[in-house]
Design a protein around this nucleic acid. Structure first.
Lengths: 215, 215
DNA sequence: TGGCTTGGACGGACGCGTCCGTCCGGTGCC
DNA sequence: GGCACCGGACGGACGCGTCCGTCCAAGCCA
């Protein structure tokens, strides 16, 4: 209360509800989450929540879209200043873990999206997802052109990269051999870039970015 | 219905309930799943379900443990006849995707475990998980000894591999660039073994297992 | 016939979404 | 400039449907 100004009745309350929805859904899961609790924490009545978001499910979609946008923004901001495609990919991975380390609730929303709704997201999400794929595909293609990246199947590689990032983040709640998610993520992305196999041609003489992860 | 014999009152009914629990939980999610439906599908009364499994949550744990065991069995069966550590890892990955392609309900149980309970599994699960890690660590170590695998950080590599497998399986419900999960998984595991970076020393002349994924 | 398993009817808790009374800011009339 | 009217934003009480876990009556085997 004491919202003296009330210049825009909508925006402030809507944002408050959305943020609380992210937190409560993340804490409780979709079915367990009580809309009344979201309303209480946002400092509004339950009726107001339904006024702004229609129903519980639409509220969840709104929360999920918000999370997607925040994550994408963070990743793009991290990759843009980098020139090398290979390093762009590494930067994206680091940004990804940074984001979820800093916003664990956002990770849980992604998990719930997959678990509750089998990823059957409405169109806005799909558009964001497709845009993500396409921008990464462009990075991969340029990397291949520049000779930094092997001529791999770009789409499959992106799905693989996505799976790697996603999977490790998901597993963050389990015991990751006593490492933080970001730490494991850094090792994993190095593996993705370089592979685990010894090169059949040469003995392990190609230490180059191994220096920074020296155990 | 018509379970005239009832030779073993326990085992048969218990197994039926467990199987139906896996299916119904996978279809509906934990909170959405109605114990009555599980009982009906298993051909028993709800009271019998509670007699055997105590409560809904314990029933879910039992289902999750069953899934874990089935999956682990399948993977070990696939890796044992293989000699080369590197190929053992590849075989394990293939077996992983095979299993979840053939048993999608089992994948959903894993997703639910993570989503509903943050992976806060009871001890039996943890033991299985630890055993899995240890057996793979042994494979990695032998691979490194034999010179097939770069001297990577074994624990981190395993988490990375697990994340890769897990993540791609999870994403199977999204549009994987019009591929099946198994197909994408095969490409991804190749990437894990070899990396995407061109080797700084030699030009891309090392096609060796690229022949089988020729686009 | 007696003990034990089974199954489904039932009570009660819980939470979604609605609906109605309230309150506040803006507008027109005096 | 002050006052009364009005519309709509707001909040929370409530109704209703859903589903967990229990309990007791009926059946089955020894």
């Amino acid at each position: 209360m004491s919202s003296t100004a009330s210049s825009h009745p909508d925006t402030a309350k809507q944002a408050a509800i959305l943020q609380q929805a992210i937190d409560v859904f993340a804490e409780q899961g979709f079915r367990n989450a009580d809309v009344q609790v979201i309303a209480d924490r946002a400092g509004v009545g339950k009726g107001t929540v339904y006024r702004y978001f229609g129903n519980k499910q639409d509220l969840f979609w709104a929360a999920a879209l918000e999370v997607t946008q925040r994550m994408a923004d963070h990743i793009w901001a991290a990759t843009e200043p980098v020139d090398s495609p290979l390093e762009k990919i590494r930067a994206a991975a680091v940004a990804y873990y940074e984001f979820f380390d800093a916003n664990p609730a956002c990770l849980e929303i992604c998990v719930l999206d997959r678990a509750e709704f089998r990823g059957s997201v409405p169109e806005p999400h799909q558009e964001y997802h497709d845009a993500l794929i396409e921008r990464f595909a462009a990075i991969f293609r340029e990397g291949i052109q520049r000779g930094e990246i092997r001529p791999v199947d770009v789409n499959a590689a992106i799905v693989g990269l996505g799976g790697l990032l996603y999977g490790i983040a998901f597993q963050g709640c389990y015991d990751l051999a006593h490492r933080t998610t970001a730490e494991v993520g850094r090792v994993a992305i190095d593996t993705f870039l370089q592979g685990i196999r010894t090169n059949p041609a040469e003995p392990p003489t190609d230490r180059k970015e191994q220096k920074e992860q020296a155990e």
